[in-house]
Design a protein around this nucleic acid. Structure first.
Lengths: 141, 141
DNA sequence: AAAACTGATACTATATTAGTATCAATTAAA
DNA sequence: TTTAATTGATACTAATATAGTATCAGTTTT
């Protein structure tokens, strides 16, 4: 079971790069080569992040992408939701015979509790936090 | 992001059925029809669970499957590991440029911490617990 | 005008998940 | 002792998700 797919993985890395160069434009190409992310793949991810208002772009030569949203306000949960869909333990694990009536389904509570825990753990991790962790270790993203 | 696939979902439901009828054999067919699980699919899951010593089988007419391991000793984590592989947040999210040296990678700690939380949450949920929850709600699995 | 870019979108490849089919061997019961 | 009900083993197909590639039009700087 893999929690983060390449989508989210690459997106996080690209955001770290942009957050580190806050205020200036980075081209998709430079991010792709520096972080070893497939170029066209990355471009799609960047565009998706524009649609979600995390970053902005500038077209043309010397153009590129720049951070828009506060890195501390971007959580891993959000990125997972964008690129892998909302975290859900099971669509409804207890259907039909077992759970004809959802309201009565005690198991749903258990499952939903775990969903909450997983989500809240990922919510603690923001791009800003990851960046500071990296910097305090003397690594640049 | 879907945490439980059909594999695990069906396996859990089958185990609940077996745990409820502890001591007697239930055929794959009866479990499949009662719980609306595709018959041949279920058979493969049951065989996999035999290999992992969770249940035993008896061949021939009136044969079937029976609980072997204590339901309280079967965690959802184990089932996820059997049917979806070990829980891992990312293979190694921070490779190459960022993390040429794994030991130095502070982010790995963050990621591994979340892995631990996710796993331990699922470890709290055993088949035994789920069964009792169901029963105390007046539902039979 | 050319080069360096993004926007949009279509396409292919690979892996995972889900489900089906088949045949041999075993056991209980008619 | 034959038949029906079952598991064991395994091969196969279908659907979906993930990963990656390609192309062309439009924009901006040089």
């Amino acid at each position: 079971m893999k929690v983060l797919t390449k989508n989210s993985d690459y997106a996080i890395r690209a955001l770290l790069a942009l957050a580190a160069k806050k205020g200036s434009y980075l081209s998709a190409k430079s991010i792709a080569t520096e972080h070893d992310i497939p170029y066209q793949f990355l471009r799609r991810l960047l565009q998706e992040m524009i649609r979600h208002d995390l970053i902005v772009s500038k077209e043309g030569a010397q153009g590129g992408f720049m951070m828009k949203k506060d890195p501390d306000a971007i959580t891993v949960t959000q990125l997972i939701e964008i690129f892998q869909g909302k975290v859900q333990v099971s669509e409804c694990m207890f259907r039909k015979q077992i759970c004809g009536n959802r309201a009565r389904c005690v198991l749903r509570h258990e499952i939903m509790r775990i969903e909450q825990v997983v989500q809240s753990e990922f919510e603690k991790v923001t791009i800003g936090k990851l960046l500071r962790d990296l910097e305090s270790a003397g690594l640049k993203p």
